[in-house]
Design a protein around this nucleic acid. Structure first.
Lengths: 280, 280
DNA sequence: TCACTGCTGGAATATTTATTCCATCTGTGG
DNA sequence: CCACAGATGGAATAAATATTCCAGCAGTGA
């Protein structure tokens, strides 16, 4: 290899191929460019289809596909297709399936293994679900509300407390003024008395809802503070008294619900708030 | 359709197919059973391979594959293969790629959207990585250590505090005696003085390591307590003084590392510990 | 405008791949 | 031990699929 000129070497993995196509697309003949775009937009089609079906779908001739592959240095369409297939094989995921297998108690490996992979699968599933179900408008609205507040009051007990404490940590890092309720024993009422409509609340709670969380969120809401809730159902008491609320349905494993998706959402929310403040 | 007898209908989706194969496997001729097992163990091979390659890999004749498919009610191997391919198409995931796209700043959607999906992708990626990289023996060892302890001292500050507080919550739920350091202001030294070799420590910290965490873990280690660390590198000070340690490499988005995989690992660890205790 | 180079479509061909068929084998019931 | 039903391996065949080829087209520079 080498011999002085840096002849573009033909990639054997998808990421490199993707990059190569991106680099070359501009100086590719019309039809080949058309295939290039199609390939990046519909990698699955290429992985599964036949030359004829892909050609039809991309609105070119089968021969063009072969030319495209050869242009990139592959033997032919089949060779190129191999790269697209390998990519699909690497995709692990499909947590639904993994969970089903683990729950069925099947497979080798110790019980500990099952527990660990069960929780990981539940976490992955929760994240996948949230990706699909989250309402962008609501998320933006929630970020807006918090971005406009002077002080953000964070409410969350019991299972939601790790989330609340993460929010506190992240807001601190991002130089957003906040108050985490429940941390300084007994002082909550005094501090919350000072809260006013220019502040805002972020309350986190999941069924069974911690009474203290619900109570504080309600009180602050009554005082005119906008409330952003992170909760698990439209029937949650936190959804009721919220100005805006975000729904999270975490998957569970052996009776314990994941918190992974909630953590990811919280991180996103804090950063989105900080971004808005930075922009003024 | 129907006509009285419940003739097994031929499934058009993977889950149903899987079930059908499971049900039927016992009363299948030898070679067909062999194919059945192979199919469930290597669905990817079937999805992508040719009849000849799959046959070779499963150590049967191509004709046996066709017979298998027809036995189940499909037209032939190709028809059956379609089910396996459809399954792959549905798999969403591949967070590596999603992240790359989002980081490239591409695509429509608002910036908030990018932030949210960026964090979700980072979380998913972390979980995928952990699934692959975790060392089962270490996990079991860690669970063992904690299962044998009288009291579990939980150490974790700053970014690790949400994890520590989750551990505390979960241990409480599972009736495991614990003490969460840093919660009762100033009382740590007195309480930790009472700790002895029959107890154990679980310490959580990530770079940059909070000095207080490292300090406390070291002190307890010196006093003869076994230490289980959850940290992000073999060079972490927590790995040094640990009896057993678990490595987590969380992906980051816009400078913020995910905590989702760590949370999942923590849940698994607590449940594994509780399981061991339950069994005596 | 012409000649030339490279691109393109589509039919022809070569190759690969699935399916069928049949002779042989295996195991079971009489 | 024999007869029979079903299962199996492997070669033969049919179908599909990828690739090649070539005539015509489009764009470029003289």
């Amino acid at each position: 290899m080498e011999a002085g000129d840096r002849e573009t070497t033909t990639p054997r993995d998808y990421d490199a191929l993707r990059q190569l196509i991106l680099d070359r697309r501009s100086d590719l003949p019309k039809r080949l460019a058309q295939v290039a775009i199609y390939a990046l937009d519909n990698p699955d089609e290429i992985a599964f289809g036949t030359a004829a079906s892909v050609a039809a779908s991309a609105e070119v001739q089968p021969s063009t596909l072969v030319r495209f592959a050869q242009h990139l240095g592959y033997d032919g369409f089949s060779d190129l297709q191999g790269i697209f297939r390998a990519r699909l094989k690497e995709r692990t995921s499909n947590y639904d399936e993994r969970l089903a297998v683990i729950r069925a108690g099947a497979e080798g490996g110790s019980e500990d293994q099952a527990v660990l992979h069960g929780f990981l699968a539940a976490a992955g599933q929760s994240i996948d679900r949230l990706s699909e179900s989250v309402d962008p408008a609501r998320f933006e609205q929630a970020a807006s509300i918090l971005a406009g507040a002077e002080t953000i009051y964070i409410v969350g007990r019991r299972r939601a407390f790790p989330v609340a404490s993460y929010l506190a940590y992240a807001f601190g890092k991002l130089k957003v003024r906040y108050f985490l309720t429940g941390s300084a024993a007994g002082l909550d009422p005094e501090v919350l008395d000072l809260a006013g409509p220019r502040d805002a609340v972020v309350a986190v709670s999941f069924s069974p809802y911690a009474p203290a969380t619900v109570e504080q969120a309600r009180q602050l809401s009554v005082k005119g503070l906008p409330v952003v809730s992170i909760t698990d159902s439209a029937f949650s008491p936190l959804a009721e008294c919220a100005t805006e609320w975000l729904e999270i349905a975490e998957a569970d494993f052996s009776g314990f619900r994941s918190l992974s998706a909630t953590m990811a959402l919280s991180m996103a929310l804090t950063v989105a708030v900080a971004e808005r403040r930075r922009k003024g």
